[in-house]
Design a protein around this nucleic acid. Structure first.
Lengths: 130, 130
DNA sequence: TACATTAGTTCAGAATAATAGAACTAATGC
DNA sequence: GCATTAGTTCTATTATTCTGAACTAATGTA
C-alpha cells in the first residue's frame, strides 16, 4: 500500500496484541523477565525517557542478535503486558507499561529490576546505590 | 545396594545440589517461579511450618502429577536456590531458603508471592498491609 | 535374610518451545 | 519505480520439558 491505503487509512499490517491490564499475569511477567536478554531490553525501555525501537537492541550485552530473535523477544514482552508497542513509520516505538502493572501488582517490577541490578550483594556492601 | 554397599559405606545416592547464596540468580528464581505448578509448591513450602515432602504435592490444583515430573519441579526449585532438600529416610524434606534470598535480594520473594496471591486486584483497594 | 512397600530418581522417547537464516511486508527516500 | 530500513513470518534446527518405565534406597514385616 502506498497512496490508496493511506488515504483510506487502511493500515493493513496485523495489529499488535496487547493484553488488557486485567489479563496480565504474574506468571507471564516472571517468564518474560527470566530471560537475560529480555530483562536487559525491558530495563532499558523502563529507564528510557522516550520510546525505544527494536533495532536499538540488535547489540545487547556484547552480542549481536538476529532480527527474528529480537522480534520474538519483543513479542514476549508485549504479550506479557510489559511493554506497549506502536508502529511509527517503519519502526516500532516501545514504551513500558509499568504504571499499569504497578496499579495491579504493586512494586513487583521495581523489586525485580532492583534485584537484577545487583540485589544487595552477598555481603560486603550494597553494591551500587546511585 | 543392601549389604555390600552398606558395609563399604558407599552411599551411592547422588548428593543433592544446592547453590551457595552468592550463586543464586534472579533469573533462576524468576524462571522457577514462572511455572504455575512450581509456584504453588513453593508457596506451600514457604507457608508451611514444617518440612514438606515431595509426594505431598502429587495433587496440585486439582490435577495429578506424575512423580517424575514432580521430581523435576523440585530439582528446578532446589537448583534455583529457592528450597533446601534433605533426605530423611525414604523421603525428602523440603524447606524454603527465603531467609537467605531476602538477605541477598530483599523483598523479592514476598512481593512475587503477594502478586501471585491476587495482586491488588484490578482495582478495588490495596489488599494487604499486615 | 528375603520380600514388599514407599519415596524419589534417572533414563529415554515424544511433545513442545526457542533460535535464527531466508524470504517476506510496509513505510520511506531517491 | 527501485533501493533502503525496520520489523515479521516461515521453516528447519536445536534445546527443553514432560512423562512412563525401570531403577535405587530406606524401611517394614515375617
Amino acid at each position: 500500500m502506498h497512496k490508496v491505503a493511506e488515504a483510506a487509512n487502511l493500515c493493513a499490517m496485523k495489529p499488535l496484541y496487547h493484553p488488557a491490564p486485567e489479563a496480565i499475569t504474574v506468571e507471564g511477567i516472571l517468564y518474560a523477565l527470566s530471560d537475560p536478554v529480555r530483562v536487559q531490553i525491558y530495563a532499558r525501555i523502563v529507564q528510557a525517557e522516550c520510546p525505544q525501537t527494536c533495532c536499538a537492541f540488535l547489540h545487547v550485552k556484547g552480542k549481536t542478535l538476529p532480527k527474528s530473535t529480537l522480534s520474538q523477544h519483543f513479542k514476549v514482552l508485549r504479550e506479557a503486558g510489559l511493554i506497549r508497542s506502536e508502529r511509527k513509520g517503519v519502526e516500532l516505538h516501545n514504551v513500558s507499561r509499568c504504571r499499569e502493572i504497578k496499579r495491579r501488582f504493586g512494586p513487583l517490577i521495581e523489586v525485580i529490576l532492583k534485584a537484577y541490578a545487583g540485589g544487595r550483594g552477598p555481603r560486603k556492601s550494597a553494591k551500587k546505590t546511585g
